[in-house]
Design a protein around this nucleic acid. Structure first.
Lengths: 255, 255
DNA sequence: TCAAAAGTGTTCCCACTACACCCATGG
DNA sequence: CCATGGGTGTAGTGGGAACACTTTTGA
């Protein structure tokens, strides 16, 4: 039984490979059908939902660990990451689970997994359509949820999610966004929907367009979106050079 | 020899009391004679300067640990704290020191202190005049430095400092500042100097005053600063209720 | 009495807001 | 041919930037 063996090794030997007391929790945002989505895992035997997360190998950069974890869950490489907060509460016990979980498993009572964890929170922005959600060994499901319709989350993960979303809302007032959330070609209404969804409020169509064009991070293509009713909107791509530059310097406007 | 005993116990037994692999580094800002200052420690026998820092007890909230550490270094309680970033680089080896340091000490080669550390960065804002800098057991000096004239810092502490200052500069565009950096009564020029020092640029005297008064976080007293040449400026205090409220909501202007 | 510092008010301008009109397309 | 959605222009406004004059006081 591969699962049993893996779990036992992970609980009983994991501290030899991973930094103890430190975990990573990720809030993975995607955008699909005008909805902001978050990737969640369902723990085996527990029926509880959690954020994707993991641990740092002893000889691994922290950010490399985050990318490794997210690549395992999404199949993507080159993911936009933002470290938004580190959670150090005492009450955020990492792994209190019913005995049920351990039926048939031989796990030491002093496993590193039962220790207290400080968790570094990252949010990630990914292109929904490219993600193939993959459960980890402890989970049986890995699914997208609308941010307005999340299930109950275990531990302090609801709090972590709230902080991530708030941080994202703050961020988009100062730095460009979208390159990692939209397909390569997109329309101005697409981009606006993305902003409206993240900010959770309506924006003026005309002012939005003017501001966005003023940033200089967009290229308007000589194409319009095919196969749509009514007037077809232009397609845009991001001007990567300008986009990257603005990611460093930021811009000043607020939506 | 108390020192020897303490150090040996700390290196050889510390992992029983503290979370391993996790440290805290603090950038303590003070304001004095129109200069922005930072508190640094000089390590015994090493003559290298470092940021004040420490570790988290196993049953201690992370923020409590930070406060404990800073109370030990400054004598202050109730310090303004802001967690600005967590550093997880591989190269930031926590404690690589010359053998010299360990002369006469019996320290195990596998001490937890030689492990790799992830460090949570906080900056603190304190009232310079109230601080009594106190070295820790590993240090022989604890001193203020002008931010423009820092000595070379060990490990990645220069990088941590740079990130802290940058974060502080960003912060003051969105949230009030000064309550923790200025004496209870201060003048508008004092407050402006503080802003100018943190932002590292000149601000217009008249526009600054108008904006500050517009925030509603200041009380003008019916007193002027005594014993100054030329026209005496009014004294102000912070309106704590409004200040605290704005700390939560933020304000929108940029300087 | 004068230099230096502080208090206050005014103008200008830009950027954000709130709107209205025209255009293109598929049903 | 018309309803729907997308592209563009404009007038109004509020806040920030730039700036000048007056007031106070010690040297």
């Amino acid at each position: 039984m591969e699962y049993k063996e893996y779990i036992e090794k992970f609980f009983n030997q994991g501290h030899k490979h991973y930094l103890s007391h430190i975990s990573i929790d990720c809030v993975v945002f995607g955008f699909h059908e005008n909805e902001l989505k978050v990737l969640l895992l369902n723990m085996k035997n527990l029926n509880s939902w959690v954020l994707p997360g993991g641990f740092i190998l002893k000889d691994e950069e922290m950010e490399t660990a985050v990318k490794r974890i997210l690549t395992e869950r999404t199949g993507l490489t080159d993911i936009f990451l933002h470290q938004f907060q580190t959670f150090g509460g005492l009450s955020r016990s990492s792994f209190t689970v019913p005995e049920l979980f351990f039926k048939n498993l031989q796990i030491k009572k002093d496993s590193w997994m039962f220790d207290r964890f400080i968790s570094v929170g990252y949010y990630a922005l990914v292109e929904y359509s490219k993600v193939k959600p993959i459960p980890d060994i402890l989970s049986e499901k890995c699914e997208w949820f609308n941010v307005h319709d999340l299930p109950e989350l275990a531990h302090d993960h609801r709090h972590i999610f709230d902080e991530a979303w708030q941080s994202l809302r703050f961020w988009i007032n100062h730095y460009p966004i979208g390159y990692n959330l939209l397909p390569e070609k997109f329309t101005m209404p697409d981009l606006q929907k993305l902003y409206e969804t993240i900010l959770d409020r309506k924006l003026d169509r005309r002012n939005f367009q003017r501001k966005m064009l003023a940033t200089g991070i967009l290229n308007r293509l000589n194409e319009v979106k095919p196969g749509v009713a009514h007037k077809a909107p232009y397609l845009y791509t991001f001007n990567i050079a300008a986009y990257e530059k603005t990611l460093k310097t930021g811009f000043g406007f607020a939506l």
